[in-house]
Write a protein that binds this DNA or RNA. Sequence first.
DNA 1: CCAAAAGTGTTATATATACACCCATGT
DNA 2: ACATGGGTGTATATATAACACTTTTGG
Lengths: 242, 242
Amino acid sequence: MTRTTLLDAAHEAAAASTATRVAVSTVIFSLRRSPDGRASVVLPLVTRTRDPHQGQWALPGGWLDITESLDAAAARTLAETTGLAPSYLEQLYAFGAVDRSPTRVISIVYWALVREDESRSASPDHDQENVAWFDASALPALAFDHNEIVEYALWRLRNKVGYSRVAHGLLADEFTLAELREVYEAILGRRLDPANFRRQVENAGNLVPTDSFRTGSHRPARLYRYNQDAELAERGPLTVRQ
Amino acid sequence: MTRTTLLDAAHEAAAASTATRVAVSTVIFSLRRSPDGRASVVLPLVTRTRDPHQGQWALPGGWLDITESLDAAAARTLAETTGLAPSYLEQLYAFGAVDRSPTRVISIVYWALVREDESRSASPDHDQENVAWFDASALPALAFDHNEIVEYALWRLRNKVGYSRVAHGLLADEFTLAELREVYEAILGRRLDPANFRRQVENAGNLVPTDSFRTGSHRPARLYRYNQDAELAERGPLTVRQ
DNA sequence: CCAAAAGTGTTATATATACACCCATGT
DNA sequence: ACATGGGTGTATATATAACACTTTTGG
């Protein structure tokens, strides 16, 4: 570690002794459709290959590299696990209770969304051996405090879907209103009135109707896309910019 | 240790070398009344006594001790600076851009509220030499990225006051509706209709009317206190419990 | 009595919710 | 034709906002 500032030796020593190992983990949400067409929120977990908690499922993550930002570390570990680029990435919380791991570790946790279609496609250069996708509402016992972390991430996702447009991070570019509504229903865990849902999202002014229709069964549904202009205005000050 | 993927010995060794210095800072909000009775949001800053940014104003904070949790570190540095116990304390964000300091430092930033009456009383065992309180809307150029951090904390405070009861963290136990409204006005930066404000907070069901009145000028105003029962239900999963 | 803040009432507008109904397509 | 989801209309409840008005104190 090369120092470039004027720190006296005593302070230097004190600072060095308080250095902490920092991990970055990510709760990655995607959508999976059951054969009956109902959608549910899923997330990837990895098996721990060493102690502590060897053999248990845990959130994907890794150590923070000294040369990379927190955001970059989250994106990197996410790519290593899933081979995907997230459609949405936001810091969740920094966990730092002393007893959350046998050795003192601070975890900066992010949460991310990846599109449904992408989460199925296998990418060549990422490790799929130890990765499996779980229904978010039926997780096994996870390593460390990861169960609580996922609960908090779900709480944040449910909250955010109510006042922002994050839902589109789980959909492809073009989508029908029924598909968008299914995302909301999967996240919120309850059915929404199609008529009222339509008006709400239309009045929000974020949807751009296209000239295409999704055909297949019954009456064709119009395809929409999101208005990219509205994107920036909505973001809070510190959202990760992709 | 939260490593969740296959790590060989070499990587493990690398991980040990990536320990990072972690700082904890806190944006501490309080209220100050001008002679004309108008309230404004103020916060304490400290002068940096060494480089980098020696002589500049900065957020109070310190290094994370290996034996203390993040929450405890925030409370400790807050007490060292102001000699006060916060009435509200919440994690704000973890800042980790590589170039935010000449040497790599991660800052876990908290934000806190201290009651108006307490923020004036001098406590014997804390350092007041380098501390000064500033109006939050007229800050000087701060060290590091602290101006942006304060902006974000203010954004969060303004947001939170809209849907939660944080405002009472700036008031004494008993308060009039006019005093509560002044807190809202100071935070939001705009006047609120007294009649509508009264109904909103009354309907929220958090206020308990007392039998006392604040007298002094004009018609006496009833004193209220907050319903402690409602406290727990409102908190998100990860609010710091005092 | 008067000024000023405390507190109540009334009305207009917007939004949420429930649900009846018509439309267009594949089978 | 008919079942089904796409899409529109409408009524009711509730929240928000603007503002007129009455009440109660100090001076």
